[in-house]
Amino acid sequence: MDNNIRIEVKDVNFYYGKKSALQNVSMDIKKNKITAIIGPSGCGKSTLIRLFNRMNELIPNTKMEGTINLDGENIYSSKIDVVEVRRQIGMVFQKPNPFPKSIFENVAYGLRVNGIKDKKYIREKVEKSLKNAAIWEEVKNRLFDNALGLSGGQQQRLCIARALAVEPEVLLMDEPCSALDPTSTRKIEELVLDLKKKYTIVIVTHNMQQAARIADYTAFFMMGDLIEYDITDKIFTKPSKKVTEDYITGRFG
């Protein structure tokens, strides 16, 4: 097994009821790299990354075929504890979704549900996660205020901190900037670039400039098919397929 591969997707099909959302997808996600998933809306980007932390299981009437390995181990095997998978693979959603709790409690949540009781450890971990998510300076004097009082961009970085607190290996981000203004978007992008030193990041984006700016690898999807997957530079300068070129030059989508 290639040591640089964190997630291995093999022949994956996915269905919502009878409707197929992904067909025959195979791809390797590289360790400590940023992988962008692009494609027109409805092409299955969210569906794909929700497969990585088994969140699609929360949607009734769905079916998954194929295998997905995390560090060589099939996360869909019956021996695997889904809670453990989700602890190893953090997720940030399209719309910031902090809990209606204090800033501190939002970040501490993942620790608490994982059975950690040591107050000192939790305090340190919360601080560290907020620092890693580049929001510590803005909230350090109001840790016990309700998180819903933060701006959209701050809420999203708080959600990143919440995901980081449980020390995942992979961070999944589903259009994390789509609800944010350009300044906040810029901040999140810088943060993501910084985070790749420690984490493997998969980011869905609707914004092609964003993919070009931050991603090492880019995968282009259309109607549930993986059309092309390569080094970002290659996708944006010399795509090997005509549809990819049409999409990135904005001829549709």
Binding site: N53, R86, K95, A165
Partner: peptide, 21 residues
């Protein structure tokens, strides 16, 4: 909002924890 539930599950909480916390 459903998003609270998803956020909770995604951090590794189980159903009971999501419900009570």
């Amino acid at each position: 909002p459903k998003s609270f539930r998803y956020a909770s599950f995604a951090t590794g909480a189980n159903r009971w924890q999501t419900l009570t916390k």
